[in-house]
Amino acid sequence: MEILVQGLKEGFLLIWQMDAEIFDVTLLSLQVSLTALVLSALIGVPLGAALALTKVRGKQVILNTVYTLMGLPPVLAGLLVYLLLTSRGLLGQYELLFTPAAMVMAQVLLAAPIVCGLTARAVLALNQEVYDTAATLGATRRQATLSIMREARMGIIAALTTALGRVIAEVGAVMLVGGNIRWSTRVLTTSIVLETRMGNFSTAIAIGIILLTISFAINLFILTLEKRTFRYENTIQIT
């Protein structure tokens, strides 16, 4: 309990004093995870929609694979990227190992299946009438598809927030492929591990609080955006 209180105090102090190193670490966390999220969205949303909307052979098997990859252990994702980037690996010549780019790659590997799978689920939950209505009103195939995505947007936003939550809190993969190098690839989660290993529990808690605050702020931002765009969203009312 004492450590927790100490951690809270230290956390506020770290933020208040804008400690250069913690600022650097926080910024990198955001950069890496948001880049990974954007890339995952660019890959996952169209892929998930395509999986849900087209008839391809073995669609069920592909979907099942995607759902399985949603639970990919971070360390395993990290290891796969590591083996790809190591100097003896397939992409070794580009010397990407222990760089933020490698961390982004590992996080995309973790986040893209989540975005893809949850997008597919959100689209699959819609009825035929969405397409029919768009089509009978003269929408082109592209316009109708966009309308379907628009109807599924709550689910897609849920997919993106879930993915962001996973990558920003993830430590196994970024530790492995990033290397936790000070001033270079150290992020909030790897800092927590390091501080804990060094016995600086209150600092670890403090960094944890920064991480949670960031997650809270991002979700608040999304929620406000949601409220503004989805004025017409009906919510269940329980009386």
């Binding site: 530790m175 290397g179 936790n180 000070r182 270079s184 800092s191 290993r197």
Partner: peptide, 16 residues
């Protein structure tokens, strides 16, 4: 390069 990791991991990274 300060890696903040255990000896085994540090060895691996130095090798890489």
């Amino acid at each position: 390069i300060e890696v903040g990791q255990g000896m085994g991991d540090t060895f691996r990274m130095a090798d890489e």
